[in-house]
Design a binder for these strands. Sequence first.
RNA 1: GGGGCGGUAGCUCAAUUGGUUAGAGUACCGGACUGUCGAUCCGGUGGUUGCGGGUUCGAGUCCCGUCCGCCUCGCCA
Length: 641
Amino acid sequence: MSVDPGIGSNRDVFARLGYDPPFARFVQSPCPSSINVREGSPKMLKRTHTCGELRADHVGQTVTLCGWVNTYRDQGKGLIFIDLRDRAGLTQVVFDLEDVADDVVTQGRALRREDVIAVRGTVRQRASEPNRKLPTGEIELVGAELEVLNKTESPPILPDEHEAAKIDEEKRLRYRYIDLRRKRMQHILHTRHRVTKLTRDYFDQHDFLEIETPLLIKSTPEGARDFIVPSRLYPGQWYALPQSPQLFKQILMIAGCDRYLQICRCLRDEDPRADRQAEFSQIDLEMSFVDRDDVMEMMGGFIHHLWKELLGTDIGEIPVMSWKTAMEKYGIDRPDLRFGLEVHDISELAAKTDFKVFHDALAKPNGVVKAIRIPGGAEKLTRKMTDGYSEWIKTFKAGGAPTVKFTDKGFETGIARFVEPIAEELKAALGLEPGDLAIFTADTWSIATKAIGELRNRLARDLDLIPEGEWKFVWVIDFPMFEWDEETQRYYSLHHPFTAPNPDQFELLDSDPSKCLSAGYDLVVNGSEIGGGSIRIHRPEVQKKVFTILGISDEEATEKFGFLLDALKYGAPPHGGIAFGLDRLVMHLVGTDNIRDVIAFPKTQAGADLMIQAPGPVDDAQLEELHVRNVLPEAAATPGT
RNA sequence: GGGGCGGUAGCUCAAUUGGUUAGAGUACCGGACUGUCGAUCCGGUGGUUGCGGGUUCGAGUCCCGUCCGCCUCGCCA
């Protein structure tokens, strides 16, 4: 029998099309004997196959399918076609109206989109051309019996891939149960399931234990804003929901668990973004008796495994880059290595010019001038675009983004006049070729670096320099332990206060904390951070020292982290770990830039659930029990209205 | 907290400079059709233009306020 390669059951074909392989048959589990089937109740047609699995091999078999009416095509007196959908796929059902009972004719003609039905009939080769768009397109189910399991009201939205891309996300969130019926959303849910399954299997094979940690914990200083929960039994006392199980997993190492895994929910009461929700999931891991390289090797192996299993891609060895290099060359701690446009520091050259913008910047503490060479940019970038960048870059507090073209005749337009004195040196420093354009930022190191890093990413997008289908992984290491904040005049942890310094850096904790590098590591893919972790401090005196540097007093340290300091005293092994952002991993694996797509029931940017209309008010009595009173601002918002 | 974009029929959109009864596709309802497959053809129902106020002879359109959604800066150790 000839099978069109485009509709075969070949796994790779579906992978190429971006579809799942057909779901395995659902096993019809026998009814548990403890459940009584009521006598006399009409018997429901029971499914024998899914809507995704019938092939030419099944021709002649009598089967029952259950699902939703995806579309119907009423051909008049003779025929009705139904595309029946379940999560596994679509199968065409045809009712030959001359061959079926009257009530099937009546009910069949009344079927509408999204009605839920069961159909029993015979599989046959299609009388007309196969539908090559469907894996089941060679066959059709000739319906003999029809059971309408549930008529639907005309649905507010349809799970139709042709339309879905355009439907307001607000509607999709409100009617999430309809939106999730879409093939694309089912594919995402399935992928997410496979990620967690592969995760558990991989780490099980490496002797990790899955252990749950509490949700009701204690608010700690630093970090994100906590969600808090009032305590009924302790008036005036509050629990906090975990931002991560960080301290518990360290305690589990001290408790001798050796290797820990948890797929856990984390909660941070901060404003969401396209790739960020207040409530999100982590794959949380910790290991004992390891150094940085051990963790990176284990976790790199895991990511390698995921990409291999889910995408069939060999991501190869993951390169390692220092934080310093990332910041200097790419202006960001999560560099996108899919394209060039590296950043150059031209502060020394800039000092030789008469350009006031450069001089003003260099006069600032840590003032720098940064530049990017844009190959062919002289023609590709219009004046309007460069003016746009100059304006846009103010978002990041930079003053602007001056440019200059380099041609056969030398520097032209923009700040050509100012760079004339350093023409040769600038040309050499940036490697300029005729037809290029150079774009600059000048400010303090942190502002100029961030601004040009953002500009680099924007330029790559605008100039279409980002190749499709490439995976550029990189480990970023050697982060500074601390970051000095001018406003509050104190150090903050770049990672978190439990991160250990690199083994050769301990002395700097005393001599110059600002120079001390940590044993942290972030895993970055295509400019997106998908995981981060560190070797932890496992000696109490080091932990105390770090708290001191962070300006956390002994009293506060004891009050907030006394349990950790105690635990570290009683035999803490060296340990370290990592947490992967599960949502972001899935986003990459299914190719979306919207985190709400990979969460079954996500929240909006204002933290509302449009389906269940959360948050909502509670009774005064409920508040009273919790020793809590509402103190409302003048206009209190109600979500979803 | 700041900036930007958006909200018109169930859904996706249109509506000229402020001017007739707010239109189209789709869904839905009715009809036709025996091989369709995003079916097709004919007819029809369907509107608090997010909400409140204002300007005007007249507001979907202009102004003020407000709510909701998205993007973003801050924030997210």
